[in-house]
Every structure is written in structure tokens, then in C-alpha cells.
Simulated scan of single mutants.
Amino acid sequence: MKKYKLLIVTVTYKPDKKELTLFLNSYHRYNDLGDKAKLIIVDNSPQNSWEWRTFIQKYHDIDFISNPSNPGFGTSNNIGFARYESDYVLFINNDVEFIEPLFTSLLKEFDKDTSIGCIGIHQKGGAPSFFLKMTAPEGAKVDEFNQETHFISGAFMLFRSDLFVEIGMFDPNLFMYFEEFDLSERLLLKGYKTVFLDKYHFLHKAGHRTKQNEFAAQKGSDSFCYICKKYELDYKAKNDAYIKRMLKMIIYNLLFLNIKEVLKIRRIICYRKKVIKENFEL
């Protein structure tokens, strides 16, 4: 089996074909490793939900894995990673575009410091490039990356492949959300660094979400409970803050008489309270 210098893995679910096309075209334009790099799409969409066979024919150099069982974001990334051997692996969103050659320069950063396990870079387009951890102390700086108090965005996570395997890859118990925090903590425990390099850029078209995805919110609540138990974190303050945000959203939607959204958020809150009780209060 051929070993690649770099694997690029992205997970899709009923993707916007125009957006995906922009991502793939930008990859072809700025791939400075040529055939030493391999892009793999792991598609979690239900079978026959979109014409991916026709779509993918013009991208014959890209591997496409149909994965309709949809085992979750992390597990699907693990599936893509396992397809080939590689020196490095980049897990990336597909609502992004490359805007400059990155691969050769970023891989050299690992050579400069062998303790680096994961690299994140600057996201243009409004989405945050990194986030405060739940374990961050009060008063921690929001806009200055520190691996002890921050984790990089899951929209772009570049790993040394051997270290990704060493830390156990994505935790399959997390269907979605909190994967970045989990990977960051496991790298730290093994003595490896997560670094943020602001001088490199890509475009992330995340946009501003005004509506809640009920399924995603429920999975997020499940992941929140799992992570709190895994790392023995105090769930109360973070959960209270979450409930307050949801209540504010109810008030906001009531002002615009958006009753459907109000009812959805109420269901999200009820589900959150149920799983909190099941995991911590019984």
C-alpha cells in the first residue's frame, strides 16, 4: 500500500454541492505536495440522498467513502484516516477554501519542533480559530492562544499521524462536539504540543447561525455529559450558562413570534435537563 506524506480527511453529510466544489477546486489549486497528498471524503449521507457518483467522477484523484451508517464525526474521520498510511493527517471541514499553499510550509513546522503533535491556523471569514477550554481559569485571555487553556478549531487540525495513533485517535463515544478539547487534552497528557500559527490562513465560511439544529443540540448535550465524566469536570456552571443562553434565545424568538423555533428550543432544554439528571443527579 502506498504511503502518503499527507492525508486530508473531510466528512460530509448531505453537502451543498456548490460549497463542496469550491473546497475541492481550492484544494487542487493550492496543493503544493502533488501526488504526495491524498484527499479523502467520508460521506455520511443516506444512500441516494444526492448524486455523489456523478459529482465525484470529475475528481478521480480523490477517494470517496460512502458511509451511510453515520457513526459520527470523529469515527468517520478515523475511517478516512485508516484508508492509507501517512506521515501527517489533516482533518478539515468542507465549508472552507484554501487560499494559499500551506502543506509544505506547515510540515516543515513539525521538523522544527518534534514535540509538536497538532497545528491549527488562522481562520478567515469570521469563525473563531480557537476556543477557551471548560477547564480554563476565570480571567484567561480569550484572544491569545495557550494550549493549557485553549483548543484549536476542529475545522483545521493537522497532526503527526504516529502521534494521532498514539493518543488513541478520535474517541468513538463522541458523536459530535468536544472532539477538539478531548484530543488537545490527550496530546497534553502525552507531553506533546498543540500550536496555533497565525501566519497561515484559510477561509471558513461558517456564517452566523440563527436557528438551532435539534439533533445536533441533543448530540452536543450527550457529548457534554460524556466529557465532564471522562475528565471529572464540574458540569454545573457550564450547564447553567447553557440553559441561560437557550432561555435568551426563547425570548428573542418570542419577540419575532417564531413559535416553531421557541418550541424547538424548549425541547432542546428538556432533553438537556433529562441527560444531566441521568448522568449526574440520579
Rank of each mutant, 00 (worst) to 15 (best):
E148C: 03
E148R: 07
E148V: 07
I152G: 01
I152Y: 02
I152T: 01
G154L: 01
G154P: 02
F156M: 12
M157Q: 11
L158I: 07
L158Y: 04
F159P: 02
F159L: 03
R160N: 11
D162P: 03
D162Y: 11
F164M: 05
E166H: 09
F170N: 15
D171Y: 14
P172V: 05
P172Q: 01
N173Y: 03
N173P: 06
N173D: 11
F175Q: 01
F175L: 01
M176Q: 08
Y177N: 12
Y177G: 04
F178C: 03
F178T: 07
E179K: 07
E179W: 13
E180W: 04
F181D: 11
D182P: 02
L183C: 12
L183N: 09
S184C: 13
E185H: 04
E185Y: 02
E185P: 07
R186A: 09
R186H: 14
R186Q: 12
R186S: 13
L188E: 15
L189I: 12
L189Q: 15
K190C: 15
K190T: 04
K190E: 07
G191P: 00
Y192V: 12
K193I: 04
V195G: 05
F196P: 08
F196E: 12
F196I: 05
F196S: 13
D198E: 06
D198T: 07
D198V: 04
Y200F: 15
H201R: 01
L203Q: 04
H204E: 04
H204F: 10
K205H: 05
K205E: 00
A206P: 00
G207Q: 06
G207Y: 01
H208S: 00
R209L: 03
R209D: 07
R209W: 11
T210H: 10
T210V: 02
K211A: 08
K211M: 01
Q212I: 15
N213E: 15
N213Y: 13
E214D: 09
E214H: 10
A216P: 07
A216G: 09
A217I: 10
A217E: 03
Q218M: 12
Q218L: 09
Q218H: 14
K219A: 05
G220R: 10
G220H: 06
S221L: 08
S221A: 14
D222C: 03
D222T: 05
D222N: 02
D222F: 00
F224D: 06
C225F: 02
C225D: 00
C228E: 09
K230L: 15
Y231D: 14
Y231Q: 09
E232S: 13
L233N: 00
D234H: 05
Y235H: 05
K236T: 05
K238Y: 11
N239Q: 09
N239I: 14
N239K: 04
D240T: 10
Y242A: 10
I243C: 03
I243A: 01
K244F: 00
